[in-house]
Computed example of a mutant assay.
Amino acid sequence: MKIINTVSIIGLGALGIMYAEHFSTQLGKENVRIVADAQRITTYKRNGVFANGMRCDFHYVTPEQPVSSADLVLVATKFHGLEEALQAVEGHVNEQTIFLSVLNGITSEREIMKKYPKNPVVYCVAQGMDAVKESNELHYDNKGILVIGNEGGELQAHTQAVAAFFEKVQLPYLVEPNMMHRLWGKFMLNVGINQTLAMLEGTYGDVQIEGEARDLMQAAMREVIAIANHEGITLSEADIDYWMDVIATLSPTGKPSMAQDVAAKRKSELPLFAGTVRTLGRTYGIPTPVNDRLFTAISEKELRYR
């Protein structure tokens, strides 16, 4: 089994900072490389990157800088930056390098496999964290867990290697034997909670109680259930109940990534959520009125601040 000693991370959003800080503390910053272009690195060094009030001491490298191959590449960009990110880490990859994506949605692993068909990719769902990034500062109360697995029931060697690495660095994780179900379940959650709170410009507290926001979120999730069943993934009301229990653990003042994007007037991952649901809905002849509404409302917000 491969032993993971070096990590390259692309993307310093909320999750990128959280895991970069954790791995740098556990492994030593020389073994954790943050890949970014020269202009961004200059900004990071000048302004600092902070996690819960503490300035992070990261090891930055540009895509052009010669480096040894990484044992693990952690992809933590936004989806619209994935293609550029995969190109940027090319110099960090050999055929034994394992990829792990903490991106939302159901497609990032497939995109990685297209770019690096010879490399092992571990499926991953990040859940239970309440990280909020504002400018260059990250705040979180709950680090959550990373759920990892692979297609098929048998645990593959590269998934075992990542699990052993998480044990070594004391990062909370769970190995999921039915990973595709988990991946679609998290997608269902994001379609509901990310888009609802982005449209309403709300916080987790708004969907932790009965009311319009919670009802809208669950209605969007039910449209994913109908589509998932056509994809051969069995989701049900029990899965909504499971994710509601996860939501209950989050800080009521926290916001999901799309709500943070709207607050900061950034481009969101709307195409990844409602965009995917609407496309698959048309493919299977399934109406998606709730996601249509969310798509229109959030698109209008983005047009006003662009």
Score class of each variant (00 low, 15 high):
Glu30Tyr: 03
Asp71His: 03
Ser68Lys: 05
Thr43Trp: 12
Met54Ile: 14
Ile41Thr: 08
Thr43Lys: 13
Gln87Glu: 15
Glu83Thr: 12
Gly28Met: 01
Ala76Pro: 08
Phe79Lys: 14
His59Ala: 02
Leu82Gln: 03
Gly53Phe: 11
Thr62His: 11
Phe50Gln: 01
Ile41His: 02
His59Met: 01
Val61His: 05
Leu86Thr: 08
Leu86Val: 08
Arg55Asn: 00
Asp71Cys: 06
Ala88Leu: 09
Val35Pro: 10
Leu74Cys: 14
Asn52Pro: 02
Ala38Val: 11
His59Ser: 07
Val49Pro: 05
Thr62Arg: 07
Ile41Ala: 02
Tyr44Lys: 06
Thr42Lys: 14
Ala70Gly: 04
Gln65Asp: 13
His59Val: 01
Val75Ser: 04
Val35His: 12
Asp37Gly: 09
Val35Lys: 12
His80Phe: 08
Phe58Ser: 07
Leu86Arg: 07
Ala76Asp: 06
Val32His: 00
Ala85Met: 09
Val49Ala: 05
Glu83Arg: 11
Asp71Glu: 06
Ile41Ser: 04
Val32Ser: 00
Arg46Asp: 08
Asn47Thr: 02
Gly81Phe: 11
Gln26Arg: 15
Val61Asp: 04
Leu74Asp: 12
Phe50Asn: 00
Ala85Ser: 11
Leu74His: 10
Ala70Ile: 01
Lys45Pro: 09
Glu83Gln: 11
Cys56Met: 13
Gln65Met: 13
Ala85Gln: 06
Thr43Met: 07
Asp57Asn: 14
Arg33Gln: 10
Ala76Gln: 05
Ala76Ile: 04
Leu27Arg: 04
Val32Arg: 00
Ser69His: 11
Lys45Asp: 12
Thr43His: 13
Val75Ile: 12
Asp71Ser: 05
Pro63Cys: 02
Asn47Ile: 01
Ala38Glu: 14
Pro66Lys: 05
Asp71Lys: 01
Ser69Tyr: 06
Glu83His: 09
Phe58Cys: 08
Val61Thr: 08
Gly48Cys: 07
Val73Ile: 01
Ala51Leu: 15
Thr43Leu: 14
Pro66Asp: 04
Val61Glu: 03
Gln87Arg: 14
Arg40His: 12
Val73Thr: 00
Thr77Ala: 05
Ile41Trp: 05
His80Pro: 07
Pro63Val: 02
Val49Trp: 05
Lys78His: 14
Arg40Met: 10
Arg40Ser: 08
Gln39Lys: 15
Thr77Met: 06
Gln65Ala: 13
Leu27Ala: 07
Val67Gly: 12
Met54Phe: 09
Ala38Gln: 12
Arg40Thr: 04
Ala70Val: 07
Phe79Asn: 15
Ala36Lys: 05
Val32Glu: 00
Val89Gly: 03
Val61Met: 04
Asn52Leu: 07
Asn47His: 05
Gln26Pro: 10
His59Phe: 03
Lys45Ile: 09
Arg55Trp: 00
Val61Arg: 06
Ala70Ser: 10
Asn52Asp: 10
Leu82Thr: 01
Ala38Ser: 13
Glu30Pro: 05
Val35Ser: 13
Ile34Thr: 01
Val73Trp: 00
Ala36Gly: 08
Phe79Tyr: 15
Lys78Asp: 11
Glu30Ala: 10
Gly28Ile: 01
Met54Trp: 02
Ser68Met: 06
Cys56Gln: 13
Asp37Tyr: 13
Tyr60Glu: 03
Asn52Phe: 05
Ala38Gly: 01
Ile34Pro: 03
Ile34Ser: 03
Asn47Phe: 04
Gly53Ser: 10
Val32Trp: 00
Gly48Phe: 06
Phe79Cys: 15
Val61Ala: 10
Ala51Ser: 15
Val32Ile: 03
Phe79Gly: 15
Ala76Cys: 10
